[in-house]
């Protein structure tokens, strides 16, 4: 188990980076939401790893909060996706530019 915490954090970093790439490259709103889930998950992994390293429960508590937040976020986000699709008939974020200057 040498360097285990480092390895876990590195895995979390890689997952976060992959999620970020997904958010940046995808145009489809659903895929962007999936990528955001990956990033949140990676953050939770980092919290749990840190908690284990310091032998404190706080890391896992934080993971629980992230979990709840992710659940709330994904429900609202998917509701928005539904509305966007109904109103604009598209999933392309590049077309959703009503708030531009």
């Amino acid at each position: 188990m040498t360097d285990s915490a480092h390895m876990v954090l590195m895995v979390a970093t890689v997952l976060f980076g992959l999620g970020l790439i997904g958010v940046l490259t995808r145009k489809n709103v659903v895929f962007m939401l999936i990528s955001v889930e990956i990033m949140l998950n990676a953050a939770g992994l980092a919290f749990v790893a840190a908690g284990s390293k310091w032998q404190q429960p706080d890391g896992q508590v934080m993971f629980l909060f992230i979990l709840a937040m992710a659940a709330a976020e994904v429900s609202v986000g998917l509701a928005l996706v539904l509305q966007i699709y109904h109103q604009h008939k598209t999933m392309d974020v590049e077309d959703l530019k009503e708030l531009r200057d």
Partner: peptide, 25 residues
């Protein structure tokens, strides 16, 4: 990592609930 409770929650909430939500959509 020795966090079985969190592992269970991960599977139940993420792999269960959230994925199902996505599939619904």
């Amino acid at each position: 990592l020795g966090a079985p409770f969190v592992a269970a929650l991960e599977i139940i909430v993420y792999a269960g609930a959230i994925i199902v939500l996505f599939i619904f959509v």
